[in-house]
Design a protein around this nucleic acid. Structure first.
Lengths: 92, 92
DNA sequence: TTGACATGCAAGTGACTACTTGCCTATTCT
DNA sequence: AGAATAGGCAAGTAGTCACTTGCATGTCAA
């Protein structure tokens, strides 16, 4: 599995996660359109596709092929690792 | 303020946070020694110092000059942003 | 004050990475 | 079948980043 922290280190990837938080189950083209309209992302379709690959390697996104489209789902569970690794002090 | 996610994207920086979690309030030399012994980090003192600068810019570490040493403290509060930005589903 | 200790600053370098470009595969509709 | 749609693969490029090297600053003890 890829590096969770590396996956989060890119702003475009974080905006992709934002978009999937707003509406889960989007295709590559939908994500490209909405990132362009709502966040001014001018990256190409291939760039977004590569970002989705990084997010999927990190376990933050899963995808399933549906006909000629690929639907992407958000998974926030891996983020728990961050909080558990450096727990907040003063609560024990 | 610097980028929280960029600060977390480097493994050496994450190990520094681990070390400060184990024992808060270490100096640069203490961190270098313990990183080398416990994690096999071979980076130079200057490399660790630069990492501490990035962590401090991100608000994850604060430091105070004490005599001829600088003491570093861990702050986990900024990590809450991550969980709040992409909340876990199915709990509302 | 002088030497030793702990850290700070800044330029240079090699590796990594996000992005583009070009072409290819798979699926749907007429 | 043939055209259009949605996506996949791979090489090349420019910019970023972690790291080192060399020198400078500040602090403490004798």
């Amino acid at each position: 599995m890829g590096d969770l922290y590396h996956a989060l280190s890119d702003q475009t990837r974080r905006l992709i996660l934002d978009e999937l938080t707003t509406q889960d189950g989007q295709s590559l083209f939908e994500l490209c359109s909405r990132l362009a309209m709502r966040h001014g992302i001018t990256s190409s379709r291939q760039a977004i596709s590569q970002h989705l690959g990084v997010l999927e390697d990190a376990g933050l996104v899963s995808s399933e092929r549906v006909g000629r489209t690929r639907i992407h789902h958000l998974h926030t569970a891996p983020l728990r690792e961050i909080i558990e690794r450096w727990p907040a002090p003063g609560k024990d």
